[in-house]
């Protein structure tokens, strides 16, 4: 992946090589360690390579009821939050992209506001309010807190997607007899579709991994996968439980990012921020 030979002089590119090594250590080694631990049965000091590989801890982890409960809760939460977020944000994104109304820029920036404060401070403040509303440790409490976090992603990317749709296409559809709603459904949405799909996917994944809000508002009744993983890592003597869970959690995000790559590559983020 990294070209270590410069094409002009043919000399070894030591700077590039150094960067490659540093990046590999920082990114790849932790991953490697977690992966190794997940498939290890016995690994005692001072061996560099585990003494025994195996799937014993996978069986044990996957047979735990709390893991499946957490997975179910996590999927329900993510699906609910993503659907609500799309319901709220997509029409708003279309309005921001296509319509002119007073206070447009201010509204647009307000979606960024929740990201402009230290997140934990905000969460604690919200938790205090939720306590009075009896939302602490409830499903909908967690949904609400996670919804706030998804707003930015679900607004900014779809705004760029809608803006990228050629207006002439929409006009051509009006010209052949389609009303405004029909144009949106048959032309605008399919045209913006791939980008919006990526935004939905990213929202789902980021909600799936969201930890602080879920932990602060949801504990102890609502335990999501990441919260469970942190519990395992903090409280269990056996490292493998945490490692196995990490690897399981890693898979969906990897798939999602593969899908999202094409969107990020086309500069949808940049366009959203330039809007």
């Amino acid at each position: 992946m990294i070209r270590t030979y410069s094409s002009t002089s043919g000399r070894f590119d030591w700077t590039g090589f150094l960067f490659a090594v540093v990046l590999a250590i920082v990114i790849a080694v932790p991953l490697l360690v977690v992966f190794t631990w997940a498939f290890t049965e016995i690994w005692r000091y001072p061996a560099v390579i585990p003494q025994k590989f195996g799937l014993r801890f996978w069986n044990q982890t996957l047979s735990r009821a709390d893991v499946w409960d957490a997975l179910s809760i996590s999927l329900q939460l993510s699906a609910t939050v993503t659907a609500l977020s799309a319901l709220i944000c997509l029409p708003a994104a279309y309005a921001f992209a296509r319509m002119k109304f007073p206070g447009r820029d201010l509204f647009f920036l307000s979606f960024l506001a929740s990201h402009a404060f230290p997140k934990f401070g905000l969460l604690v403040a919200i938790a205090a309010i939720f306590l009075q509303l009896n939302l602490i440790a409830t499903f909908w409490g967690v949904v609400l807190i996670q919804l706030v976090g998804t707003l930015m992603l679900m607004i900014w990317i779809p705004v760029a997607a809608f803006q990228a749709v050629d207006r002439r296409m929409e006009e051509a559809a009006r010209d052949v007899g389609a009303g405004p709603l029909r144009v949106f459904w048959s032309i605008t949405l399919p045209q913006a579709g791939p980008t919006i799909f990526a935004a939905v996917l990213l929202t789902f994944v980021s909600t799936f991994y969201e930890t602080e809000g879920a932990w602060l508002i949801g504990a102890p009744q609502i335990r999501t996968m990441p919260v469970l993983m942190i519990n395992f890592i903090n409280n269990q003597v056996v490292i493998q439980y945490g490692a196995v869970l990490s690897v399981i959690l890693w898979v969906p995000s990897f798939i999602a990012l593969m899908f999202a790559r094409r969107v990020i590559g086309t500069g949808a983020f940049a366009k959203g921020f330039g809007a």
Binding site: M169, E171, P190
Partner: peptide, 10 residues
Amino acid sequence: GMVFQSHALW
């Protein structure tokens, strides 16, 4: 019926 400069095909 309008034909646009950029063809505007879907």
